[in-house]
Nucleic acid binder design. Structure first.
Ligand SMILES: [Mn+2]
Ligand SMILES: [Mn+2]
Ligand SMILES: [Zn+2]
Ligand SMILES: [Zn+2]
Lengths: 141, 141
DNA sequence: ACTTTAATGAGAATGAATCTCAACTGCACA
DNA sequence: TGTGCAGTTGAGATTCATTCTCATTAAAGT
């Protein structure tokens, strides 16, 4: 069994939640590709293979995936919440082009280290970084 | 005339927009305090003194204040967009407590410098940083 | 299989943000 | 100081992402 599925199953079990068919379908769909995604993307993707997984269930399941640590809420684009994998992905920061909407991912480690230092000063315990900048990509300048 | 009002007036003029009463009232309300705010906060604040500035106009004016560089869109809290001053405020990053909702502001310069280096590598021109982390504040751990 | 309890689909409801439009106002110019 | 006109406004309607409701169904332990 794939590692992410195992983690998911254990997470659900630890919360006394059931590993249902829709929950599995949704989780597998999430790991079928590696792009940023929103709930609607996911719904459309799932609908191709599984006619009867409802939007409501996806909206209910995504927060479970977040809580399990497999994905995180990342950006907001076009008034929609955007998610991305955390499991199997390095932490990174996002440069978002204000013209074409492109999202560029870039390094992270040095930045995180610096921010950790600042957090320590405030005695703040970080659970999730959220780092990025808006501007113009090389194509759009 | 206060500097921010002057900048605002010049900005409006440069875009062939009129400096109307509601626009002035809204701008002044924004600079009456120095907290993060959302449109509804602003509406309630303004309503106390000026009965007839509509929510619609506030929603229309806030993007002008953003475009003029006086404020920026900052976080999202409780499904609402949150704004904060940029004019007269140092850039900073946000530590957001997931338990009590407190927002802690912290330094910035070293982080920005590092991110500038990364942006240069991608040939990305930054116009606005968006830096923060979620976690637990010292009181909530 | 039976029982218990949680989860689901479908559609209704919510609420922040946007849009519409008739009435109004800033402002350039006379 | 008045006139004209394009840009603005308030009020309410609308949109649309997200959440909720509830009758029905399914997981999982026994
Ligand atoms: Mn990413
Ligand atoms: Mn701030
Ligand atoms: Zn671009
Ligand atoms: Zn706290």
């Amino acid at each position: 069994m794939k590692k992410e599925k195992e983690l998911y199953r254990d997470f659900l079990r630890s919360k006394n939640l059931k590993l249902t068919k829709p929950r599995l379908i949704i989780m597998e769909a999430v790991f079928e590709n590696h792009e940023h995604f929103n709930v609607d993307d996911l719904y459309e993707q799932i609908k191709k293979k599984h006619k009867n997984v409802s939007r409501a269930t996806i909206y209910r399941t995504v927060p479970l995936l977040v809580e399990s640590g497999l994905i995180k809420q990342s950006l907001r684009c076009e008034s929609k919440d955007i998610y991305e994998h955390t499991y199997g992905h390095e932490n990174h920061l996002h440069f978002i082009c204000e013209k074409c909407g492109k999202i560029i991912e870039s390094g992270f480690n040095d930045v995180a280290e610096l921010i950790d230092t600042l957090a320590e000063k405030e005695n703040f315990k970080i659970s999730e970084y959220n780092l990025g900048a808006r501007g113009l990509c090389s194509d759009c300048q």
